[in-house]
Amino acid sequence: LTVEVTLDGRRIELHGLSEEAHEILRHALERNADDKEIKKILEELRK
């Protein structure tokens, strides 16, 4: 799955996400998580 997010003013596409990762990010974006929170989530998903 692919998600497009804006971090530090740049639009980035995240490819190859699992369903779980996609859901976690989608929920964070829906509640307008800040860049710091999104980065933390991405860091966790990379593990």
Rank of each mutant, 00 (worst) to 15 (best):
L1R: 06
L1P: 04
L1Y: 15
L1W: 14
T2P: 05
T2F: 09
T2S: 11
T2K: 11
T2I: 12
T2L: 07
T2Y: 10
T2G: 05
V3T: 06
V3Y: 09
V3D: 03
V3M: 15
V3R: 01
E4Q: 09
E4S: 13
E4H: 09
E4C: 14
E4G: 05
E4I: 15
E4N: 07
E4T: 15
V5I: 15
V5Q: 02
V5D: 03
V5A: 03
V5S: 02
V5F: 12
V5H: 02
T6F: 14
T6Y: 13
T6C: 14
T6D: 07
T6I: 14
L7S: 03
L7T: 03
L7D: 03
L7Y: 04
L7V: 10
L7F: 06
D8K: 02
D8W: 01
D8R: 03
D8S: 04
D8L: 02
D8P: 01
D8N: 09
D8G: 08
G9C: 05
G9I: 02
G9R: 01
G9W: 04
G9E: 03
G9K: 01
R10I: 15
R10L: 15
R10N: 14
R10P: 03
R10C: 15
R10A: 10
R10W: 12
R10Q: 15
R10V: 15
R11T: 14
R11N: 10
R11K: 13
R11Q: 11
R11S: 06
I12M: 07
I12K: 03
I12N: 03
I12V: 13
I12W: 13
I12Q: 07
E13Q: 13
E13V: 15
E13C: 12
E13S: 10
E13G: 03
E13I: 15
E13Y: 13
E13A: 07
L14E: 02
L14P: 01
L14I: 15
L14S: 02
L14D: 01
L14H: 02
L14Y: 06
L14F: 08
L14N: 01
H15D: 07
H15V: 13
H15S: 13
H15R: 11
H15G: 07
H15C: 07
H15P: 04
H15K: 12
H15M: 10
G16Y: 07
G16I: 04
G16A: 05
G16N: 12
G16T: 04
G16Q: 06
G16C: 08
G16P: 02
L17S: 00
L17D: 00
L17K: 00
L17C: 07
L17I: 05
S18K: 03
S18V: 02
S18F: 03
S18Y: 02
S18R: 03
E19V: 14
E19A: 07
E19Q: 14
E19W: 13
E19T: 12
E19P: 12
E19L: 12
E19Y: 14
E20P: 04
E20N: 08
E20R: 10
E20S: 11
E20G: 08
E20A: 11
E20H: 11
E20M: 08
E20W: 09
E20T: 11
A21K: 03
A21F: 09
A21E: 14
A21L: 05
A21Y: 07
A21Q: 14
A21S: 08
A21H: 10
H22Y: 15
H22E: 09
H22I: 15
H22T: 11
H22C: 14
H22D: 04
H22P: 01
E23W: 12
E23T: 08
E23Y: 10
E23Q: 12
I24S: 05
I24K: 10
I24W: 06
I24Y: 08
I24H: 05
L25S: 00
L25T: 00
L25M: 04
L25A: 00
L25W: 02
L25F: 04
R26S: 10
R26I: 13
R26V: 13
R26E: 05
R26H: 06
H27S: 15
H27I: 12
H27K: 14
H27Y: 10
H27E: 15
A28D: 00
A28M: 09
A28T: 02
A28F: 05
A28R: 01
A28V: 04
A28E: 01
L29C: 05
L29T: 04
L29I: 14
L29Q: 06
L29D: 01
L29R: 02
E30D: 12
E30I: 05
E30K: 06
E30G: 07
E30W: 05
E30T: 05
R31V: 06
R31M: 11
R31W: 05
R31G: 08
R31E: 07
R31Q: 10
R31D: 05
R31I: 09
R31Y: 07
N32T: 05
N32L: 08
N32G: 13
N32R: 06
N32A: 06
A33Q: 04
A33K: 03
A33V: 05
A33W: 06
A33L: 10
A33E: 05
A33D: 03
A33N: 03
A33M: 05
D34E: 10
D34V: 05
D34C: 05
D34H: 07
D34I: 05
D34Y: 04
D35I: 10
D35E: 15
K36I: 13
K36S: 14
K36Q: 12
E37M: 07
E37W: 06
E37H: 05
E37F: 06
E37N: 03
E37S: 05
E37R: 02
E37K: 03
E37Q: 07
E37V: 07
E37Y: 06
I38Q: 00
I38E: 00
I38W: 04
I38A: 01
I38T: 01
K39V: 09
K39L: 13
K39E: 09
K39H: 11
K39D: 05
K40P: 00
K40T: 08
K40S: 12
K40C: 10
K40N: 08
K40M: 13
I41Y: 02
I41N: 00
I41P: 00
I41H: 01
I41G: 00
I41C: 02
I41W: 03
I41A: 01
I41V: 04
L42R: 00
L42M: 06
L42E: 00
E43F: 07
E43P: 00
E43W: 11
E43H: 11
E43Y: 09
E43A: 11
E44R: 09
E44C: 12
E44P: 01
E44F: 11
E44H: 07
E44L: 11
E44W: 14
L45W: 08
L45I: 15
L45A: 05
L45N: 02
L45M: 08
R46Q: 14
R46T: 14
R46Y: 15
R46E: 14
K47C: 15
K47W: 15
K47N: 11
K47G: 10
